[in-house]
Write a protein that binds this DNA or RNA. Structure first.
Lengths: 126, 126
DNA sequence: AATATATTCAACCATAAGGGTGAATGAATG
DNA sequence: CATTCATTCACCCTTATGGTTGAATATATT
């Protein structure tokens, strides 16, 4: 997955209006631009621009039928993003496990202060 | 959870440099500002500012000891954010289930086109 | 053909974001 | 006490963002 893509997704999701749009689409299915705009105290144009941002991030797709544009949420980017956060958590937990092992191994040498979470790695704790 | 908070977290995570900082911290534990900056082709000042953004989003905490500031990743906001994406997926799946039920119920009336995913709700498909 | 509807495009404005530099602050060290 | 080191603060610049309005485009409707 492109790092640039992830940035676009997160930036798109970083705006309240856009998150609300996404939520609306997810719970109500595809909606027209006007229908979406009706939910917001904001010009239709602005909503249209927000949709464009979501579209460029791949969070939303557009199906044009006649003069009406139906906007639908896209599930895949959500998974990808969730995965990034999940990976980060995994690395974290792996490192914590390693730390704990170290502490347990040293247990008879010097009694550690406990609390592996604040007593961080080779750099952190003085 | 505050919506504003979520926005700050996602905006903070939306920048590549900041994601790299987070990753570094998660895999190496707490690091000094200078140590972090060494990884980037960018002024120390800029990195310092990125750290501040992460800090304001709660993604990172600072422990100052003497003249050195140790920056550590914070796990909790990651969970919250992951949860937001997860919730969205859940709503999505719930709605799809409901749609499938509808389709199955109508099965003898008129043979549907199948494909519940593109044939969206009451608004979408013409 | 004329008009109304749905949507985008273009230009504009204010403010935020991301980067840089130089000075200021605070702590260690000779 | 002067100096070096670690970091932030203040200011500047350029570009992006979120919002506005008015015009343009494309499709329906009468």
């Amino acid at each position: 997955m492109d790092d640039e893509t992830l940035s676009r997704i997160l930036k798109a999701a970083g705006d309240t209006t856009r998150r609300r749009i996404l939520t609306l689409l997810v719970q109500e299915g595809a909606l027209r631009v006007t229908a979406l705009a009706a939910h917001f105290d904001m010009s239709l144009n602005s909503v249209s621009k927000h949709i464009k941002v979501l579209e460029e991030a791949g969070l939303v797709t557009r199906r044009t039928v006649g003069r009406e544009h139906f906007i639908a949420a896209e599930l895949e980017p959500l998974k990808v993003t969730e995965a990034w956060f999940g990976d980060l958590k995994s690395i974290w937990e792996l490192r914590l496990e390693a730390l704990e092992e170290l502490l347990v191994a040293k247990d008879d040498d010097n009694a550690p202060t406990g609390n592996a979470r604040s007593g961080t790695a080779r750099n952190g704790t003085a």
